[in-house]
Structure formats: C-alpha cells, structure tokens
Amino acid sequence: MIRNGTGKTLVTYGLLLAIAFVMLLPLLWLVSTSLKAPTEDIFQYPPQLLPQQPTLENYAQVWQLAPFGRYLINSTIVAVLTVTLNLLFCSLAAYPLARLSFRGRDWILTSIIATILIPFQIVMIPLYVLTVQLGLRNSYLGLIFPAIASAFGIFLLRQAFLGVPKELEEAARIDGCSELGLWWHVMLPAIRPALITLAIFVFIGSWSDFLWPLIVLDPGSDYYTLPLGVASLEGVFSPDWRIIAAGSVLSILPILLLFAFLQRYIVPSEAGSGVKG
C-alpha cells in the first residue's frame, strides 16, 4: 500500500503537471501550427495538436518574405541597451537610498515607489512629446528612452543592497575605497542574483513591448522591432496563420533561451561570494 505521505506527494506532482500542461498548451499549439504543412487544416475539429506532416517551410518563408533578420537585430539592440542602462541607473539610484543617510531619503523613496501606480498610458503622451522635442523619433534612443530606469528596479535593488552585511562596507572603507568604488567593487557583486533577476524582467519587457514602438516609429520604419514585425505579418499573410505562428515562435525563442541560461543564477547566495578581489 502507498503511504499517506507518498500519496500526497504523487497527488501534488500530478496537480502541478496538469497545471503546467494547461499553461504550456497555448505555446504547444503555436509551435504545432507553425510546423503544419499547407495541406493540413489548422481549424479542423476536433483539433489536432501533432502535425501530420511536420515542415520547416513556414520558418523559411518568414525569413524570405519579411525582413525578419532586421527585426531581430533591432530588438536585440534595443533590449541589450535597455537592460544595460536600467541596471546602471537603477543601481546608482538604489545605492544611496539603501546605504546612505540624508535628509528626505524616505520621502524620495516613497515618491519613486508611488510612480508604480501610474499607468504608462497616462504618461505616454508627455513622453512622446518629449521624445519628439529631443529629436529621438525613429531611432534606437527613442525606443529605449522611457525604459532607461524604473521604479520597480530601484526598489528591487534597494532591497538587495539592504541585505549586504555592513562588515563588507566597513572593510572597504578602511582600505580606502571611495564611494563609487564601494558601489562598483563591493555592492554590485554582492547583489548579483538581484541584478540578474532585474535584467531578465527588463529584457522580457523590452523584447515584447509593442505599444511604445508603435507610437514612436513610422509605419515601415527600418527600426521595427519583432512585435511590430510579427503584427505586420498578419496584414501580409492574413489567410496563412502558419507563417504568423512561425514568426511568433521566432520572436519568443530568445526569451526562452535567455531564461533557460540565466535561471540558475537566480538563487540566494552569500553576499561576500561575489566580491571582487
């Protein structure tokens, strides 16, 4: 007979597997549609998850009939720059809010956190006007301008800085480390898991952003990112959802690869383990 503890474990794992399957079903259906041959009916009932004649022809057509390579390069440039600037500015803002004492610090922190409650749609028009006045329309800088820092990133890194032992800071000061050197050589390596976590969130948000590029770029611009490129496929290949599905799979594949590569770093670690020598 199965013990009660073992039975509960099996039920728990079974429930988790069922939930995981339900969550992954849309992705599996998207991949299945992208692999189906033109002769297969993607709207048949009952639906068929596994394609009868798997083919990569749809992926080849995406690359041949649309500048998908250009979309991929644009999204990569925008995402990498956004992540880099976000980590830089958020960490520079979070460090004094966590480790320095000055008048108005708590008020500044509260004001920053309060901006999380403001929807992007409210500040969208002022941001667009400012972007136009700065001459940043139809450019990489215009695409990354609203996302070079975030209240969530500042708050996340501040909480991580608070967890760094004071002994590390005191030892660095005794060795004559400057404030900027303390931030760079001691604090940033100590909060590496938080930095990687923020990098993943920022990358996903930048990579999948559709509204702001749609506003700041002209139709058919050379700076089109993948979300806009995939949306344009519907107009070019409106009756062929296989090609649209193939473009969608190509657009989310880098996110899955990034998360698979970096997820092992998102674990609690000793604060001193990452300090540079």
Rank of each mutant, 00 (worst) to 15 (best):
G5M: 10
G5C: 06
T6R: 15
G7E: 10
L10K: 10
L10S: 06
L10I: 13
V11H: 06
V11T: 14
V11Y: 06
T12N: 10
Y13C: 03
L15C: 13
L17K: 01
A20I: 05
A20P: 04
F21H: 08
F21L: 15
V22F: 12
V22L: 14
M23E: 12
M23Y: 11
P26T: 08
L28R: 03
W29S: 15
S32Y: 00
S32F: 00
S32K: 00
S32Q: 02
T33C: 01
T33A: 09
S34K: 01
S34Y: 01
L35A: 05
T39M: 10
E40M: 02
D41K: 00
D41Y: 00
F43T: 00
Q44I: 05
Q44E: 11
Q44T: 06
Y45R: 13
Y45L: 12
P47Y: 01
L49A: 14
L49V: 11
P51H: 04
Q53D: 15
Q53K: 12
Q53P: 02
P54Q: 07
P54E: 04
T55W: 04
L56A: 13
E57Y: 05
E57I: 13
N58Q: 12
N58K: 04
Y59N: 14
V62F: 03
W63T: 13
W63N: 11
Q64D: 15
Q64F: 11
A66R: 07
F68S: 04
G69R: 06
G69A: 07
G69P: 11
R70C: 02
R70V: 14
L72W: 04
L72A: 15
I73M: 09
N74V: 02
S75R: 03
S75D: 05
S75Y: 04
S75W: 05
V78A: 05
A79D: 05
A79F: 02
V80W: 00
L81I: 10
V83S: 11
T84L: 11
L85P: 03
N86A: 08
L87F: 02
L87S: 05
L88W: 14
L88N: 14
F89G: 02
C90H: 03
A93P: 00
A94F: 09
Y95W: 10
P96H: 09
P96G: 11
P96F: 07
L97H: 06
L97P: 04
A98I: 01
R99V: 03
R99E: 01
L100K: 13
F102P: 07
F102N: 03
R103W: 11
R103A: 12
R103L: 09
R105T: 02
W107T: 09
W107N: 01
L109E: 03
T110K: 09
T110G: 10
S111H: 08
